[in-house]
Amino acid sequence: MPSDDWMRPSPRLRQARHVEAGAVTILLLAVAGAILALSSVRNGLFAALIAIAAGVLLDVMLQRRVGSWGYLEREDDLLIRRGLLVRRLSVVPYGRMQFIDVTAGPVERSFRLATVRLHTASAASDARIPGLAIEEAARLRDRLAALGEAHAAGL
């Protein structure tokens, strides 16, 4: 499939993922702090080091994954690709969409981002696009809803 016309999530998703990785790191550091208070200073520092290393690793992974998301609106269906280690490419025909969800968690919301999720009658079709700017999410939702109506097919 051609790679140049794929749409991508908003660049702000990278920042949102940084924040998420940071939050996890802070949680891990809190655990390290507890160890420091209850056990020796040496153990505590060791735990803190592990926490920071884990946080950095998580951040790198999340950042790389952000780059793997892409979607392409074709004439009759929507393509979504994602994943680095396990690469997935989903094809969702417009006529098969039952409803479209736009959700935004606290982190996403603070960056004015949203996730668009497509539902078909199959529980297995897992089609979502995270980290869209809310204007783009709204545009995509409306467009998909209109296309879904035009292509609708029964079970």
């Binding site: 280690l85 396990v86 690469r87 997935r88 490419l89 989903s90 094809v91 078909t120 297995a124 079709s125």
Partner: peptide
């Protein structure tokens, strides 16, 4: 006629 969506999945070993 019953296909709802299609997915291509490629794991690391498969790659």
């Amino acid at each position: 006629t019953k296909v709802q969506s299609l997915r291509r999945v490629e794991g690391p070993v498969q790659r």
